[in-house]
Amino acid sequence: MKKNKTESLAAEKGLFVISLTLNGRPAEFRVKPGDFLLDALRAHGWKGTKKGCDTGDCGSCAVMFNGKPRLACMIPAVTAHGAVVGTIEGVGTVDKPHPVQEAFVEAGAVQCGFCIPGMVITSKHLLENVPDPSEAQIKKALDGNLCRCTGYVKQIEAVKIASKKLRTKRAAK
């Protein structure tokens, strides 16, 4: 989402007030100058996005940001002003899970679960752009989401299962 007007935000009483679209709805965050989007999300109650390293290396903070999966821990919160952000909470719920989430459960790809929100965000984006990815494509797309529990074997399987589920869903429409 690119606006064609130059904008400027000033801090008031040490806080920036930013407006963004979060999980499809307008949201307003008060953020500290030193905050990153990850801190801001969690401080405002969006706990699904996790902090594993804070250096952009583990992917557990992956969120949708202006159309691509990006690392929330590397985005200064104030620069999220005007952005379109999607977190794991917006993907699906226990009552209405997204096929990708169902697939991760079915495949046995969830052990401790800490890396899973990031994995789901990345996998969902992959499948929306490459509906039938090869194993090599899956591995490449997920290479920024670290997991120490599963060895990735069942997670890659989960993406394949999700691809089938989504294909069935599309065919049914």
């Binding site: 690119k2 606006k3 064609n4 007007k5 130059t6 904008e7 400027s8 935000l9 000033a10 801090a11 920036f16 500290k32 100058p33 030193g34 200064p76 104030v78 620069t79 002003h81 005007g82």
Partner: peptide, 16 residues
């Protein structure tokens, strides 16, 4: 970055 007072979002090169 704790003393940041301003954030500018330039839409064109000259503003940047």
């Amino acid at each position: 970055m704790n003393d940041l007072k301003k954030c500018v979002f330039p839409a064109d090169l000259n503003s940047a």
